[in-house]
Simulated scan of single mutants.
Amino acid sequence: MLFSDVPDPELLKTLLEPLLNDFQYWLSRAKVLLSTEEISFLSPEAHSDLLARVEQTLQEVNAAQSLFHATGCQVGLDGSAIVRWHTLVAECWKIMIHYRLGQGSQGSPIEQS
């Protein structure tokens, strides 16, 4: 996930710090939603799986942030980890949007789209 052969630490700090903060913010919001609300358009298995993936990825992001700061911003992230995290965040955004849209109406928001 992390590698040490990277360019300028200031460039990494400028690029990675806000990205890691965004991942942490959105994954934390998804975790709260999935931990506290019933998502009627997700099966219990899909709900549980998504929550587990969010929790695992949040741990990975937190670990990456800790290593990033502990090394003085001299470690980068593997692109495949960033893509995987972004894909999960996008999946969570879709669920959150459908959930919010469905709160004021009957039935599944996916069926209404």
Rank of each mutant, 00 (worst) to 15 (best):
L33T: 14
L33N: 15
L34V: 13
L34W: 09
L34K: 07
L34A: 11
L34T: 14
L34Q: 09
S35E: 13
S35L: 10
S35Q: 08
S35H: 07
S35P: 12
T36F: 06
T36W: 12
T36D: 15
T36K: 15
T36N: 15
E37N: 12
E37M: 15
E37H: 13
E38V: 14
E38H: 15
E38T: 15
I39N: 01
I39T: 07
I39Y: 14
I39Q: 05
I39R: 13
S40G: 13
S40N: 10
S40A: 03
L42D: 06
L42Q: 06
L42R: 11
L42G: 06
L42K: 01
L42E: 05
L42H: 08
S43C: 03
S43A: 10
S43D: 09
S43H: 10
S43P: 04
S43W: 11
S43F: 08
P44D: 05
P44N: 13
P44I: 06
P44M: 09
P44E: 09
P44T: 09
P44Q: 11
P44R: 14
E45R: 13
E45W: 10
E45L: 11
E45F: 04
A46C: 12
A46G: 01
A46H: 13
A46R: 15
H47M: 09
H47D: 08
H47W: 04
H47I: 06
H47P: 00
S48M: 04
S48T: 14
S48W: 00
S48P: 01
S48I: 04
S48F: 01
S48A: 12
S48N: 03
D49H: 00
D49R: 06
D49K: 03
L50M: 14
L50R: 14
L50A: 04
L50F: 06
L50P: 11
L50N: 06
L50H: 06
L50Y: 04
A52H: 10
A52L: 12
A52D: 04
A52E: 12
A52S: 11
A52Q: 09
A52K: 02
R53S: 04
R53C: 01
R53E: 12
R53M: 08
R53G: 00
R53K: 14
V54L: 10
V54N: 02
V54A: 00
E55C: 03
E55P: 00
E55G: 00
E55N: 06
E55W: 00
E55T: 08
E55I: 11
E55Y: 02
Q56E: 10
Q56D: 15
Q56Y: 01
Q56N: 13
T57H: 14
T57R: 12
T57Q: 06
T57V: 08
L58G: 05
L58F: 15
Q59G: 02
Q59R: 08
Q59H: 07
Q59D: 03
Q59V: 01
Q59E: 12
Q59C: 01
Q59N: 10
E60K: 09
E60H: 10
E60L: 11
E60T: 10
E60F: 01
V61W: 04
V61A: 08
V61I: 02
V61F: 02
V61S: 00
V61D: 00
N62V: 00
N62L: 00
N62G: 07
A63G: 00
A63R: 12
A63N: 03
A63I: 07
A63V: 01
A63F: 05
